[in-house]
Design a protein around this nucleic acid. Structure first.
Length: 945
RNA sequence: GGGCGGGUAGCUCAGUGGUAGAGCGCCGGCCUUACAAGCCGGAUGUCGUCGGUUCGACCCCGGCCCCGCCCACCA
């Protein structure tokens, strides 16, 4: 590999002509392999390396996952930051790794087992976990390979996995310490139970489905003393099997007579009290009477605590009714609901129902409706941890971008609930707690204890639960660096600088990392949180397998036929509508756009956006940009001949285009830098895109043609130097964003003496380690050149417009008469005459008599006139009067419109008094300019008719 | 019920208290020795709506109407 690229690098321009079209497939994997094998991604751990560090920990993708657009987006962003910092001579470390993703992974493997007609229980815990590990070996690294395709410059030598032994040790350490500090405790609570995965969930893992059409069912409880009945309303009739009270509002006139009475349960042997509770009951709602099921409803649970009610759990862990349900035992929850309603009808207790819109809690992973259940679990006490995390952001030690999210962050942390961290799963971190069979004491310890800490019994059994996968994620910024050991890496790279992730895991992950980082390290885990939006399809709809609108980044990079897209979507379970959409939207599939094009596209979206509506057309646009860059480079390399890159920038260039492009280069590079520094990668990439295309290609390269054809060797050499330097700087500036193509071209630039600088030693090997350009070092501010070029450009465009409007063939040479209204413009056009002539395909004739041009129609036959940047001009002989009239009228309309607005403004006395002087002055100048243009246009029109 | 974000060119989206921008699309003309994945020229918007602040508002403030998201225990 090394040899191959060496050959390329030194082969010069002439003998290895570049293909006309850039093919990303030819270079991407090649360069990645080169970078990786040369160790360019590795952060230095040498003691002698005193460079400032830059650290960023990857949001570890789940091992279940394959790369999706969200990953691609984040990877690109993080890679740009890392590559940029590395080029700025930082000791840059981007830590890669994967997450074991407890419940998500377990669900996937269980699904596989199901195909073999097995459940995890058939295998038993040990064999099941073994199986998950085997699966992880097979697929766990896939996404990391995919990250490589994106160009991610992670330090693979420091790759981590949340369930590897070192990180398990960190988890145990964290658990034991928090437990010792009283921040982890065991509690019996009403928890969120997922009946299909049969585990408890944290509040965050429960998603609410809104606007579900349900019914509000009324039924009657007979009052025990026979004095009547009480009608209650409920959305969950089956839970009446667990009712232990009926509640009314204490002030409700209608139900005063019930206070102190009991009602009889129709299906189980139980009389239940009527209680008065102002907190639970809203007299306006339903019948104003609430059935109370403390074991299966959060409000009722709280009510039960207030009134000391019995908590009767009526469900088994799998969601079927248990023995408390009497004759309903064994039925599934929803079947039970039906049967309870029927039974109530039969007993004549049903009192009708009405439609009711409600919200349903569902498990984030399984989608099952969550059942509130009373259960004993491990919890983390959050409030003491939340306080410092709030302070860290308040005090600016951590900055959250976009800033709007700080509010959300504060709101969540200020209302934080304790975190249930135990899960009844098999795949995950074991809990370092041992239950004593003799005295029921729980011994919490890092190492397996031999005896119970309380009674010394040896009858110990480790807690069977595992930890919420987010518990280990919360430690990620320091566990990956070796914590709890005080390793050199930890010392050197903690705290990290940036954390970039999706806003959807602000609470799940970011907030918890901050809390844990502050708690265990005493320092914030990162100083900045960058929250990215959600990638959607071009309609703004969430990508989903069912909708068939998932765009696989690898398909975009490598290309994919429509057939393969359809096949993939079908395999993933897309519905017919989704397939139809797919066929309609991407009739030709995807061309191989390349990773660089995809990266540029993803970068071009504003980080403020919550939605990133990815459009293939846009990717195509950036693929075209890559090709443009490629061809501009071809042009440059073809024209260098023996010139090598040997100084940057060329000293004291004399030719206007050279002066101008260096000035613009400086501005572009500064814009790119400030964009990246301000985390506005959209601004940074856009500044470079426009500089490269609109200025470098459209103007500089065109202007360089006559210069390179000059018979003056000094002009030619100066231009070649400027050309190669500008190209080199462009490549370096773009490299963090488009790593592959920039390396491919950079390697082909012939290099002479390498300039002195800190990165000299590495300069020749790879663009990755070349310095990021700066406006000062690589550009050359030259306002005068910019002004002159502006004039030049305006005249060229004016003449080109005339050519286009009048259908004048390119081959026809034009005589352009001109007169300048100011000395600067006059000088520019005088000096740069031959450049302008070569761009307009004609001859410039300077007129000493301005009136000739003012009255062009009299002096010339069929002349077209123009007014541009202080220059008046006329092109005689070639003009169709009708077309010219159309053109002039259009121009006139425009000036009149603008002029009217300006005049109105200047007529306003308040404006003249109050507006800043320079604004007024500028407005006046505009007025004068427009007025003169308008006059002249009018005159020209008059002569025409 | 609270909170947040958004409504700008046909589409997807930037944007700034002082003459409205990009990409794609559209119209017209070009195979111009870097590039047809291109070049040249052109058209396109009462910047959601109603008020207010201001000399001046797409931008700041308030109301309203849509759209999206997050949080919250209303049976």
């Amino acid at each position: 590999m090394g040899d191959e690229h060496q050959t390329q690098a030194t082969s010069g321009s002439s003998e290895s002509a570049l293909a006309k079209t850039y093919d990303p497939r030819q270079s991407e994997s090649r360069w990645y392999a080169f970078w990786e094998s040369e160790g360019f991604f590795k952060a230095s751990s040498e003691a002698s390396d005193t460079r400032e560090t830059y650290t960023l920990a990857i949001p570890p993708p789940n091992i279940t996952g394959s790369l999706h657009m969200g990953h691609a987006c984040r990877t690109t962003f993080e890679d740009v930051l890392t590559r940029y910092q590395r080029m700025n001579d930082k000791n840059a470390l981007w830590i890669p790794g994967t997450d074991h993703a407890g419940i998500a992974t377990q669900v996937v493997v269980e699904r596989q087992l199901k195909k073999e007609n097995l459940t995890r229980h058939d295998l038993g815990r040990e064999a099941f976990v073994k199986r998950v590990w085997a699966w992880r070996e097979e697929s766990g690294g896939r996404i990391l390979q995919q990250l490589r395709k994106m160009g991610a410059s992670c330090d693979w030598s420091r790759e981590r996995f949340t369930l590897e032994p070192a990180l398990c040790r960190a988890v145990n350490e964290a658990f034991v310490r928090l437990h010792r500090e009283g921040l982890i405790y065991r509690g019996t609570r009403l928890v969120n139970w997922d009946v299909s995965s049969q585990t408890v969930l944290s509040d965050l893992e429960v998603e609410t489905e809104e606007n579900v059409q349900g019914e509000l069912f009324d039924f009657a409880y007979p009052v025990t003393d026979g004095s009547g009945e009480v009608v209650v309303s409920t959305t969950r009739p089956e839970t009446m099997l667990g009712d232990t009270a009926v509640a009314v509002h204490p002030d409700d006139e209608r139900y005063q007579h019930l206070h102190g009475k009991t009602v009889s349960h129709p299906f189980v042997e139980r009389t239940i009290p009527v209680i008065a509770d102002a907190e639970l009951v809203d007299p306006e709602f339903g019948t104003g009477v609430v059935k109370v099921t403390p074991a299966h409803d959060p409000n009722d649970f709280a009510t039960g605590k207030r009134h000391n009610l019995e908590e009767i759990s009526i469900f088994n862990l799998n969601g079927t009714v248990n023995e408390q349900g009497g004759t309903f035992a064994g039925l599934d929850r929803f079947e039970a609901r039906k049967r309870v309603k029927e039974a109530l009808e039969e007993r004549g207790l049903a009192r009708g129902s009405k439609k009711h819109t409600m919200t349903l809690p569902r498990s984030q992973r399984s989608g099952t409706i969550v059942e509130p259940m009373i259960s004993t679990q491990w919890f983390v006490k959050m409030e003491p941890l939340a306080k410092p995390a709030i302070a860290a952001v308040e005090e600016g030690r951590i900055q959250i971008l976009p800033e709007d999210w700080t509010k959300t962050y504060f709101h969540w942390l200020r209302n934080i609930q304790d975190w249930c961290i135990s899960r009844q799963l098999w795949w995950g971190h074991s809990i370092p707690a041992w239950h004593c069979g003799a005295c029921a004491h729980i011994t919490v310890s890092i190492e397996e204890p031999s005896v119970c800490a309380s009674c010394q019994s040896t009858d110990l059994r480790q807690d069977e639960d595992v930890l919420d996968t987010w518990f280990s994620s919360a430690l990620w910024p320091f566990s990956t660096l070796g914590w709890p050991d005080d390793t050199p890496d930890l010392k050197r790279f903690y705290p990290t600088q940036d954390m970039e992730t999706g806003y959807d895991i602000l609470f799940f992950w970011v907030a918890r990392m901050i809390m844990m980082g502050l708690h265990f390290m005493g320092e914030v885990p990162f100083s900045r949180v960058l929250l990215a939006g959600l990638v959607t399809d071009e309609r703004g709809e969430k990508m989903s397998k069912v909708k068939g609108n998932v765009i696989d980044p690898l398909d975009v990079i490598g290309g994919a036929s429509l057939e393969s897209l359809v096949q993939k979507a079908e395999r993933a379970g897309a519905k017919p509508g989704g397939i139809k959409y797919l066929k309609k939207t991407y009739p030709d599939g995807f061309l191989p756009y390349g990773a660089d094009a995809l990266r540029m596209t993803l970068l071009s979206y504003s980080p403020q956006a919550r939605r990133i509506a990815l459009s293939i057309k846009r990717i195509e646009g950036y693929r075209n940009f890559a090709n443009k860059l490629w061809n501009a480079s071809r042009y440059a390399l073809m024209n260098l001949h023996d010139t090598q890159l040997n100084a940057r920038p060329p000293s004291a260039p004399k030719q206007l285009p050279n002066r101008w492009v260096l000035s613009r280069l400086g501005a572009a590079v500064d814009a790119a830098r400030s964009g990246i520094d301000g985390y506005r990668l959209d601004d940074a990439s856009s500044a470079l895109y426009h500089f490269v295309w609109d200025e470098f290609c459209d103007w500089y390269l065109e202007l360089s043609k006559p210069l390179l054809a000059s018979d003056r060797p000094d002009v030619v050499e100066e231009t070649r130097q400027t050309l190669v330097h500008t190209l080199d700087a462009i490549l370096r500036a773009l490299h963090p964003m488009m790593p592959f193509i920039t390396e491919e071209i950079w390697q082909r630039i012939p290099r002479g003496r390498i300039p002195q600088g800190p990165q000299d030693a590495t300069d020749k090997r790879t663009i990755m380690l070349a310095p990021y350009p700066t406006g000062d070092a690589d550009g050359r501010t030259d306002p005068e050149a910019e002004q002159s070029l502006h004039t030049l450009r305006d005249v060229v465009v004016a003449v080109r417009t005339i050519r286009a409007e009048h259908d004048i063939p390119r081959a026809k040479s034009l005589q352009v008469h001109w007169h300048a209204d100011n000395p600067a413009a006059s000088q520019t056009l005088g000096e740069e005459r031959s450049l302008v002539e070569s761009l307009i395909g004609g001859t410039l004739i300077a007129e000493d008599a301005p009136e000739k041009l003012r009255d062009a129609a009299e002096h010339f036959t069929n002349a077209a006139v123009f007014f541009a940047a202080g220059i008046r001009g006329a092109v005689p002989d070639v003009i169709d009067p009708d077309k010219e009239r159309d053109r002039l009228e259009r121009e006139l309309k425009k000036s009149v419109k603008e002029l009217t607005a300006i005049e109105k403004k200047l007529a306003n006395a308040n404006f003249l008094e109050r507006a800043p002087a320079e604004v007024v002055e500028q407005t006046r100048q505009n007025q004068a300019r427009l007025q003169s243009t308008k006059d002249q246009l009018e005159r020209a029109l008059k002569r025409l008719s």
